[in-house]
Amino acid sequence: MAEQTVEVAVSTVIFGIQEHEGAAKLHLPLVRRVREPHLGSWALPGGPLRPEESLREAARRNLADTTGLDAAHLEQLYTFGAVDRGGPQRVVSIVYWALVRTEVAATTREDPHVAWFPAEELPPLAFDHEEIVGWAVKRLKNKLDYTHLSHALLPEEFTLGQLREVHEAILGRRLDPANFRRRTEASGTVRPTGAHQAGVRHRPPALYRSTAREELLT
């Protein structure tokens, strides 16, 4: 029996907010595999770790190669390395998750093998990537309670309504607008710019900026 080899890879779960059926939804880009195993299946962007790069550099390369985008937030998620993972060659994957701003996600480089999907409506995925996405969504939901990562999915200036829509897209449920406004304003994590959203009639909403930019750029 031939000895099984082990390969170290880095994969990245990339999240952005896009419109879907008239509402803001959490989306992620997937790549269609062009070789076996799982030829033609959708998968997370990733690949072997190069000798000259750090794990973080590999994760950013995955993001740039797949979408042409840069992350507003990048964080290591977990390591997946089951003995039978990857087929004939065991693959240990260090997985990162990334957040890209709404206006940036809309500028993804066109590629016939790359497409964005709602996180709640993914196609069948290769390998154990469905499990990995589940871990990443759970981590993102949990961190809403004690971080300001939702700001990394928005433009530099945003309304409280847009911020609430991001929270609703991640949590998958509606939030009371008045309660959300009070809680957000009391948190000290946003400050008004003094400007208002353009192109809106009848009391255009105020624009805010995040006070937690350094926390986001980790």
Rank of each mutant, 00 (worst) to 15 (best):
R33M: 14
L74D: 00
R61W: 02
T12Q: 12
G40V: 06
E185V: 11
A71M: 14
T66G: 00
H151E: 11
V34C: 13
R139N: 10
S150R: 04
L207M: 01
D84F: 11
V92A: 03
P192D: 02
R183G: 04
V190G: 00
A212R: 15
H73M: 06
H20K: 15
K143P: 00
S11G: 13
F80H: 10
E75C: 06
E3W: 06
Y78R: 13
Q18K: 12
Y208R: 10
Q89W: 00
K25A: 13
A126I: 08
D176S: 05
E156K: 05
A98M: 04
F127Y: 14
E52S: 12
I94M: 14
S210V: 05
R101S: 06
P45H: 12
R183K: 11
R60L: 10
R60V: 05
L74W: 01
S41N: 04
L49S: 06
E75H: 08
T184C: 08
V137C: 06
P112D: 00
A105M: 09
T184A: 09
Y96N: 03
A136M: 03
A82C: 04
T108C: 15
A198M: 13
H27P: 05
Q197I: 09
R182H: 09
N179Y: 14
Y146H: 11
L69P: 00
P45Q: 14
K138H: 07
V83G: 04
G47D: 12
R56G: 09
Q76T: 03
M1I: 14
L122I: 12
V137E: 05
W135K: 14
G199E: 12
T108L: 15
A152T: 10
A23Y: 12
W135N: 09
N142F: 15
H73A: 06
L140I: 13
R182G: 09
V8W: 09
R174T: 14
R173V: 12
L217K: 00
A43C: 12
H196W: 06
L69F: 07
P204Q: 06
E53Q: 09
Q4G: 02
I14S: 01
Y146L: 07
P48I: 12
N179M: 14
A58N: 10
L171W: 04
K138Y: 08
R182S: 10
E75I: 06
S93G: 05
L74M: 04
A198N: 10
E168L: 11
G68S: 02
H196C: 03
P123G: 05
P118K: 08
G22C: 14
R56D: 13
D70P: 02
R203Q: 05
T147W: 04
P112Y: 00
R164N: 05
Y146E: 07
R101E: 08
A152S: 13
W116F: 15
H151A: 09
I14P: 00
P48D: 08
N62K: 03
W97L: 12
T184H: 06
G172Q: 08
L77T: 00
H38W: 13
H167W: 11
F127R: 08
E156G: 01
T159G: 01
A115V: 05
G16D: 04
G194W: 02
D145V: 07
T189S: 08
R182P: 02
R109L: 15
T66N: 00
L149Y: 08
H20Q: 15
E168S: 07
